[in-house]
Computed example of a mutant assay.
Amino acid sequence: MKTMKCPLCGKDANSFVYCHKEKQSICWNHCNDCQYFISIDYSCSYELSPVQKKIIELRERKRKDNQERQVNEYAVNEHKAVMMRRDAISKEAAHISAPYDAASVLKAKKAKKKKVKTAAKQAAPTVKEVSLF
């Protein structure tokens, strides 16, 4: 890739932009730092009419307002999500940190075994011998 020297600073640069004010190509750093630089469409406003400049300024302001609104909405939604997670964690912690009672656990296991045995007895059909002949 060919590099050229910027006529303003004398440094080697790969990207140049034609400047209407300087009437020559200058390096991107100078264009970006210029007071006439417009960030919304990366162009120069040196030869624009005052009406065109005002329109561009209003567009830029609207874009910045929309961006700030989106950032604010994101922050609010993120805050809501964090609070919901905190509530869920505290509920889980309350459930987990309940005191462990070995006697009630054994009692529940015995009751479960008893239910399974009675269900098996009820489900087992009475088998009668049937003669096929």
Score class of each variant (00 low, 15 high):
S104W: 03
D87W: 04
K117Y: 14
V130A: 12
K115I: 12
V127C: 07
C27V: 02
A94N: 09
R59E: 14
A108Y: 08
A124I: 00
V82H: 04
M4V: 08
R63H: 08
C6I: 01
N29I: 01
L48M: 07
L8Y: 01
K23M: 11
K5N: 15
A103K: 11
E73Q: 14
K128V: 15
K112W: 03
V76Q: 07
I26E: 01
N66G: 06
E129M: 14
S45H: 06
H30C: 06
S25I: 00
S43A: 04
S90F: 12
M84V: 10
S97E: 10
E78A: 10
T118N: 13
A124H: 11
E78D: 10
K115Y: 12
E129W: 11
L8M: 08
V82S: 08
Q122G: 12
F37C: 04
S45Q: 05
N29K: 09
V82D: 08
I56M: 14
D12Q: 11
R85H: 09
L106K: 13
C34H: 09
M84A: 14
K113T: 05
Q67F: 08
N66W: 03
E57D: 14
K107S: 06
N66S: 10
A119G: 04
S15I: 15
Y36Q: 07
V105H: 02
K62D: 02
V17S: 04
I56E: 10
V71S: 06
K5P: 04
Q122M: 05
C19Y: 02
N77D: 10
N77C: 03
I89S: 01
D41C: 07
A120M: 14
L132N: 03
C6M: 08
V17Y: 09
H20N: 12
K11Y: 10
H79S: 05
N32A: 03
E92N: 13
Q52H: 01
A81N: 15
S45L: 07
S43G: 03
M84T: 06
L8I: 11
P50T: 02
D87S: 11
H20Y: 10
M1H: 10
A75L: 12
K121T: 11
P7G: 13
D65Y: 04
P125G: 13
T126I: 11
A75E: 08
A81K: 15
K107H: 00
K128G: 05
K107Y: 05
I40W: 01
P7E: 09
D33F: 03
A88T: 05
H30L: 05
T3M: 15
I55T: 13
I38D: 12
A124D: 07
I40Q: 02
F16Q: 02
H79A: 11
K112T: 00
E68C: 07
I26R: 03
A94W: 02
C19N: 10
F133S: 11
M83L: 15
A108T: 14
P99Q: 09
F37N: 09
K23S: 14
G10K: 11
V17L: 05
A108P: 01
E60K: 15
A88V: 00
N32G: 00
E68N: 15
A103G: 03
N66Y: 06
M84E: 05
E47L: 13
R85W: 04
